[in-house]
Simulated assay, not measured.
Amino acid sequence: MRDEGKPIFTSLLDTDKYKFSMQQVNFHQYPGAMAKYRFKCRNKDIDLRPLIPAIREQLAMVAELRFTDSELRYLSQEPHLTSDYIDFLSDFSVDASQIFVREANGGIDIFAEGPMLKTSPWELYVLPIVNELWFRHSIPEPDYDEGRRRLANKIKFIKEQGKLEGFNFTDFGTRRRFSKEWQAEVLRTIRLELPEYFVGTSNYYFAREHGLKPIGTMAHEYLQAWQALAHPLDAQKAALNAWAQEFRGSLGDALTDVIGMDSFCNVLDLYFAKQFDGFRHDSGDPAIWCNKLINRLTELGLDPRTKRAIWSDGLDFEKMVELYRQFNPCIQTGFGIGTNLTNDLGYKALNIVMKVVEVNGRPVAKLSDSAGKTMCENPDYVAWLAGAYGRKEEFV
């Protein structure tokens, strides 16, 4: 049986790259912003309450961590990270007084509240902790051989496809991983077996440990925050403008589904289309989404083949190859794969998220292109926002 008290995190670097890029914009452009993040488990048949003491213990251990000098030197090699932001990280820690874990309404309630600079990182520590503790608790003797068999079948499937010119995928599985050790094994195997297609990982710790390229730009929380920092109807444009101002052409992949793809296409003018090299899908029908992207780029007089479509929603290897074959002749393609890569040992995966729900005392929301992904604590705000974008019937 695995030791349930063993620390899951030993480094603050064990998180996704986009947490740093978003935090840098936060640090430079809205350092005083306050935020609230709320955890949600979408599995109706799973009771996480027995894990509460262990979750609290793990979170307390994360709060004791600091970036080491060697980790800061590694981050300073990233050209988009500025020296003043690296200096900020040299004294950075997450604050245990700003993360709360309790039983409520017959289930578990986890939320972080405080300065956005300090509370945003909690998401990528909370989710892997809950995942790993759940599997330590419910699967004391995991069948790793079954996981290896499944991984070998994925690798075999890709190799049987012949030459996939332009096909590539990235590990996006940190928040969804079965365990830290299993993610490490998967990355070692994939890097060895599929080096021509596996381009990197979103996780800075594993990128550093395994000599992989760290990959990532922005997440939903970044665009949602601007609903409170600007007028909600101007939020997408303000967020994209701020990103362009901060990174000056670096990290040029934009997330498209915070209000919905139709809304994003309305915002995507020639300026933004030239500022951003790629566009990431994370909800809704993946083929419909890409056709909308291609059509919009064409309307703007741009060759879609000069841009990149990136899918990151519920992918498996078969779906990645299918989308690649359908769209690679028309646009560059890329894939970020999570659960099916780092949590596929034959056990039911948790469907858990931790989203920003409030910034500066104002509600924020994501109007997803997939039913059930909306998360906001103010239904009146969701109704207003959906109505303003002509989507009220989908959310009320």
Rank of each mutant, 00 (worst) to 15 (best):
F9R: 10
L12P: 00
D14F: 11
T15Q: 14
K17I: 08
Y18M: 07
S21R: 11
Q24I: 06
N26D: 03
F27K: 14
Q29K: 15
Y30Q: 08
P31G: 06
K36F: 09
K40Y: 02
K44I: 04
A54S: 07
R56W: 04
Q58N: 00
R66K: 14
R66A: 09
S70K: 14
E71T: 14
Q77N: 13
E78S: 09
H80K: 07
T82E: 06
S93T: 15
V101Y: 11
R102L: 07
G106I: 14
I108T: 10
I110H: 07
L127G: 08
E132Y: 00
E132C: 00
E146S: 08
G147P: 11
A152S: 04
K154T: 08
K156A: 06
K159L: 10
G162I: 08
G162S: 05
N168Y: 07
N168V: 07
D171V: 09
Q183E: 10
V186W: 05
R188K: 14
P195H: 06
F198D: 03
F206S: 01
E209G: 12
G211M: 14
L212F: 05
G216K: 14
L223Q: 12
K237C: 09
L251K: 15
G252S: 15
G252F: 11
A254S: 05
A254Y: 07
T256G: 04
I259F: 14
G260F: 07
D262P: 05
D262W: 05
N266K: 15
L268F: 00
D269W: 09
D269M: 08
A273C: 08
G278Y: 01
R280C: 09
H281R: 12
A287I: 11
W289R: 12
C290F: 02
N291T: 04
L297H: 12
L297A: 02
T298S: 13
E299F: 12
L300K: 11
G301Y: 09
R308H: 09
W311M: 05
S312A: 15
L315N: 12
E322P: 00
F335S: 12
I337Y: 10
L341E: 01
L345N: 03
L345M: 10
Y347G: 00
L350E: 01
I352Q: 11
M354N: 12
E358P: 13
N360W: 05
L367V: 04
A371C: 03
N378P: 00
D380S: 10
D380A: 13
Y381R: 14
W384G: 00
Y389C: 02
G390P: 11
G390Y: 04
E393K: 15
